[in-house]
C-alpha cells in the first residue's frame, strides 16, 4: 500500500517532468515579448519549487509541501494554488465513478444471472450481443453518439452537469432535478463497457457454480429454485465479482476523464487535459497523483470487502 503510493508519486513526478523546459520558460518568453521584466518574480518561483535543481530535490520539495502543509504547489497558468482548483472537480469525478459503479452492479448482476440461468435463450443472446457492442464502442465515441442522438431527436441541451441557467446558483430542489436529468448520461456512457464486461464475468462465474454438487444438495433439501439460486451459486459467484471492483474502478476513473472532456463536465478530465497541454506541471501532477491514489485506496477497500464476504479468503 505505502510502497505503491510512493511509486505512484514518483511515476507521476517523472511523467510531469518529461517535457523539455517548463512553464516558467514559456511564461518568461511571454513576458519578454510584452516587455515586462519580471525576472525577480520568476526567480523566486524557481527557488520556491526548486525548478532547475536536480530531479530528486524538486521531488522532495513537492512531496514535503504535500505531506506537511497540504500544499500541492501552484497552478502557473491560473496563478492560484492547486488545492483551490481541484477538490470540487475530484469530488465530481469520484462521485460519478462511484455512481457508475452502482449502475454497473444494478444492471450487470440481474442480467448476468439471467444469462447464466437461461443459457442460450433469446434473452441470453441479446445480452451477449449488447455486451460485445458495449465492449467495442470506446467511451468517447458512445458519448458523442448519445449527445448527437439526444440533441437531434430530443432537443436536449447536452454537455455539463446542469443546465446553463443553474450554473453558479445555490443548490435547490429544481437544480437537483436538473442535475439528475444530466448526470445519467455520463453514468450510462462510462458504465456501458464495464457493465458489459461484468455481465460476461457474472455469467461465466455462475455457469461454473450452477452445476456444482452443493446446488444439487440444496435442491434435494427441497428449496425452491429461486431460493437456492440466490442463496448458494449466486452467493459464491458474487465473490470474484466483488474483486472486479479492484480493476473496474481505475477504468471507470479513466473513462470518466475522457467522457468529461467530450461532454464538458466540471470534473478532472478537462482540467487535466488543459494542464497537460500547457505544461502546468503541478496542477497536472497533483491531479494524476490524487486520482491514482484514490483509485489505489478504492482497490484496497474492495480487497477488504472481499475478505469480509468470503470466509475462505479470511481463513488464508
Amino acid at each position: 500500500m505505502v510502497p505503491t503510493l510512493l511509486l505512484v508519486s514518483i511515476t507521476t513526478f517523472v511523467i510531469i517532468q518529461l517535457p523539455p523546459g517548463d512553464y516558467l520558460d514559456s511564461l518568461a518568453a511571454e513576458m519578454g515579448e510584452s516587455g515586462v521584466d519580471n525576472t525577480a518574480v520568476l526567480e523566486s518561483l524557481r527557488r520556491q519549487y526548486g525548478l532547475g535543481e536536480p530531479f530528486y530535490v524538486q521531488y522532495f520539495k513537492w512531496m514535503r509541501g504535500i505531506l506537511l502543509e497540504g500544499d500541492f504547489g501552484l497552478s502557473f497558468e491560473k496563478n492560484r494554488p492547486v488545492t483551490d482548483l481541484i477538490w470540487d472537480r475530484l469530488g465530481w469525478t469520484f462521485g460519478i465513478s462511484i455512481m457508475t459503479l452502482l449502475f454497473i452492479w444494478l444492471t450487470a448482476l440481474p442480467i448476468g444471472i439471467y444469462s447464466a440461468v437461461r443459457k442460450y435463450s433469446v434473452g441470453d443472446y441479446v445480452a451477449t450481443f449488447f455486451g460485445f457492442i458495449g465492449l467495442a464502442i470506446p467511451n468517447f465515441l458512445l458519448a458523442l453518439v448519445m449527445m448527437y442522438v439526444a440533441f437531434k431527436f430530443f432537443g436536449q441541451s447536452v454537455g455539463g452537469l446542469v443546465s446553463p441557467e443553474y450554473l453558479g446558483e445555490p443548490w435547490t430542489w429544481a437544480k437537483f432535478v436538473d442535475l439528475l436529468k444530466h448526470i445519467w448520461m455520463p453514468i450510462v456512457v462510462v458504465g456501458t463497457s464495464g457493465a458489459a464486461a461484468l455481465i460476461r464475468i457474472m455469467r461465466a462465474n455462475l455457469l461454473d457454480e450452477l452445476y456444482r454438487p452443493y446446488v444439487v444438495t440444496a435442491r434435494a433439501k427441497g428449496m425452491t429454485e429461486f431460493q437456492l439460486l440466490l442463496r448458494y451459486p449466486v452467493r459464491v459467484a458474487l465473490n470474484p465479482f466483488i474483486s472486479t471492483i479492484g480493476w473496474i474502478l481505475p477504468t471507470l476513473v479513466s473513462g470518466e476523464i475522457i467522457v468529461a472532456v467530450v461532454m464538458n463536465l466540471p470534473t478532472t478530465g478537462p482540467l487535466l487535459l488543459r494542464a497537460l497541454l500547457v505544461q502546468d506541471m503541478f496542477l497536472a501532477g497533483s491531479l494524476i497523483l490524487i486520482v491514482s491514489m484514490l483509485t489505489v485506496v478504492g482497490t484496497l477497500i474492495s480487497d477488504v470487502l472481499l475478505a469480509l464476504v468470503d470466509p475462505r479468503i479470511r481463513y488464508q
Partner: peptide, 24 residues
Amino acid sequence: QRFIEFIRSVPTIPLWMGLAAAIP
C-alpha cells in the same frame, strides 16, 4: 508481480495522458 499490480491499480488514462502530452 508487485510491479504488475502497481500498473494495474493505477488508472491508465491520466498516466497515458501525462506520457503522451510529454511528446513534443
